[in-house]
Design a protein around this nucleic acid. Structure first.
Lengths: 258, 258
DNA sequence: GCAAAAGTGTTTCTTGTACACCCATGA
DNA sequence: TCATGGGTGTACAAGAAACACTTTTGC
């Protein structure tokens, strides 16, 4: 074992060394349906096939920085790094896959992240970036490169579970939104219908969840809705919904695959 | 970019390559208190200091295999790999830390696992393995090497949250156990007292949680308790407790650090 | 006025919580 | 018999579910 210096111990040379990718399950709600972000691969392996946005971690980068960089390269949007809670975005680590049997190039570790975001437009195809697009995830998406179908399913299940007890549903909404929009998020993510009146009471009555802005959101038919924002100073990963807002038992509650 | 072959694309050479460790937060309940497994480090860095059991992933290993191997080397016990659900043990991935600023040897990624286990004895110190021991985690453990204090706190919080809605509390118990032992697990993990009678009703009345064995556990004073086992064929990570067994609001419910 | 959506009130039922009470054993 | 812990019954309160009803807008 080559001890370069007594003050700077070295990693044992029997240890493996692995390329590491960061892949992102980016979810949003558009037109009442849950969508995931995918890109068409420009390079082998799986060239031309859809995949989750992601790529290799570069030396000197943190995992979060790599996730933000890949998202920016492939969607043009800038995710404030360490953005857990800053703005409507929410980025959190999902889990790590690999290193064996998931990449034809050899052993590769993939650290995956879950991004919950309000709907946003994507740059047109072309340029140096692969085309990124939103695809609905109505149960049957499928067909992604690598083990990305599996990762996507795990990300969706995480999102479904998380909005039960955390205020993270608001991460799918713009900074100010009516209660009905938040309800639409829950309905899209869970794939169920919720009673508008009971949801309103529960959402507005839970301390540390919503905060009225005083403004009204006009536009559509019917009475204008009051606009709310996510309560200030609340950790968006904290369990503030006590008791939780639980999905109806009919809704899919599959455990994430081990 | 050196394309070694058209049929076997290579990892781009701008990608970083990282040593990867697996570290395990092993928790158990002994004498009514939650304990974590730590080992005393025999090598630099942090020689002589306590740390979570773990070590480098070797080439050709899966992460779970590495976790099982490290546990076996340091505690002498054999964790059936892919053991999610087999036997009373439960091993699940916690999260991944790094690669920057956590190891004086340089950038190292740590994939961490959470092991929930019934109390078991440990081999005596000496031999080629570091001494492993159980330490109580009454809030103030502290003093572990690397970022292991942080990882341990995340693991404890995961365990606290998980037993609310999954049958995993039984992973701390032997194959057959009285309801009171399971209640003791909840009390130790949450650091609260629970009403024995209501707990009994809830635990035995939840479908897919406990299964009577018909046997009685004698021994102590008082009426002998019926023994139960974890219900067969239930995914221990599935959320079977509906509605969940929720910890009293006074109990620590800190969100895992981002 | 009418339709549509927001928001409130009310009733019913389920569940958590607290605690009185009985059961089965050892000393 | 008493102490100890296992297990059941019951009353109360909090919350979920269902839905009638009022409010406020556009057409």
């Amino acid at each position: 074992m080559a001890d370069t210096a007594r003050t700077r111990p070295a990693v044992p040379d029997t240890a493996g060394s692995f390329p590491v990718t960061v892949d992102v399950v980016a979810l949003t709600v558009r037109e009442g349906a849950l969508h995931a972000l995918v890109v068409d691969r420009l390079l082998e392996p799986f060239r031309g096939q859809a995949a989750l946005p992601g790529g290799f971690v570069l030396p000197g980068e943190t995992l979060e920085q790599a996730a933000g960089r890949e998202l920016e390269e492939e969607t043009g949007l800038t995710v404030p790094t360490g953005a857990t809670g800053a703005g409507p975005w929410h980025l959190e680590q999902l889990r790590t896959y690999g290193p064996l049997g998931r990449d034809p190039r050899g052993p590769v570790l993939s650290v995956t992240y879950l991004l919950l975001a309000p709907a946003f437009g994507l740059p047109a195809a072309g340029g140096d970036a692969a085309e990124a697009r939103w695809v609905p995830v109505d149960g049957n998406a499928g067909g992604l490169a690598f083990d990305h179908d599996h990762i996507l399913a795990d990300g969706i299940e995480r999102a479904r579970a998380k909005i039960e007890y955390s205020p993270l549903g608001a991460a799918f909404c713009p900074p100010e939104f009516p209660v009905a929009e938040l309800r639409g998020v829950y309905e899209a993510v869970w794939g169920t219908r919720l009673d508008a009146r009971n949801f309103h009471r529960k959402a507005t009555g839970t301390p540390g969840f919503l905060e009225p802005t005083g403004r009204l959101g006009g536009g559509g038919p019917g009475r204008p809705a009051e606009l709310y924002r996510l309560a200030a100073g609340v950790d968006p990963t904290a369990a503030v919904l006590h008791p939780p807002l639980m999905r109806p038992v009919s809704s899919g509650r599959a455990a994430p695959s081990a």
